[in-house]
């Protein structure tokens, strides 16, 4: 078994031992979405218009929240040192870590989103668009976010910094995903937006692990 698969297994095991690690961002997701009807307007016709955008903003914030821990523990306890010492590809390792992050963050968000759709009066036609946009879009969030997490893993109070770095990079995903949900809701075509999300995912899969790998090496020269 290679160190990459061993690390994926170990991280999933760790997530199973510490459920708070992935449950807390999920609860945060739920709470943020609940703020909008309270703060703006609980009228269903109004809510149905903003539901897609609100759910996506909440998903984005919840992802950021869970990213902070992605590499920090590995840097602090010496796991990163062992990866580098192993001579195995850091590209594969970064990809594996992003995959684990998606499994414990993006995947539960995608599965939970329909519940939020109900609460926010999401139009019936928009559910598939919501689920599909999250399924294709959240891996991009994990991959891009992993770069930020790798860059800030050695920095004190890196969580806030991470958000500053990564939020602007999340804008294209947010634009296309929220638009897909909105257009599905008003009965218009939304496959183009999903196509763009897919293209971004392909690009992120190819390129972000290089950046993460380069960023991980920074944390070693301390």
């Amino acid at each position: 078994m290679s160190l990459v698969t061993a690390t994926i297994r170990r991280d999933l095991l760790l997530a199973a031992r510490n459920p708070g690690e992935w449950l807390n961002p999920l609860m945060f997701f739920l709470m943020v979405a609940a703020l909008f009807p309270l703060a703006v307007d609980p009228d269903p016709t109004f809510l149905s218009k903003i539901a897609g955008g609100v759910i996506w903003v909440a998903a984005l914030l919840a992802t950021l929240l869970s990213l902070d821990a992605l590499y920090k523990a590995d840097v602090d306890d010496g796991s990163l040192e062992q990866w580098l010492a192993s001579g195995e590809s850091l590209y594969a390792m970064s990809l594996g870590k992003a995959l684990v992050h998606w499994c414990i963050s993006g995947l539960p968000l995608t599965l939970m989103a329909p519940v939020l759709g109900l609460m926010l009066a999401l139009p019936e036609d928009a559910y598939w668009a919501l689920i599909l946009s999250l399924a294709v879009g959240t891996p991009v969030l994990s991959l891009l976010g992993a770069v930020g997490a790798a860059l800030t893993a050695g920095v004190r109070s890196g969580g806030l910094l991470l958000s500053l770095l990564i939020l602007p990079l999340y804008i294209p995903v947010l634009i296309f995903a929220a638009s897909a949900v909105y257009h599905a809701g008003i009965g218009m075509a939304w496959n183009g937006q999903i196509g763009f999300l897919g293209a971004m995912l392909a690009l992120a899969l190819c390129l972000t692990p290089f950046a993460s790998a380069a960023a991980l090496k920074l944390n070693l020269s301390r």
Partner: peptide, 11 residues
């Protein structure tokens, strides 16, 4: 083996 043990406390 560095001075960090690379041991996860929850495992």
């Amino acid at each position: 083996q560095g001075h960090l043990a690379a041991v996860k406390k929850a495992l």
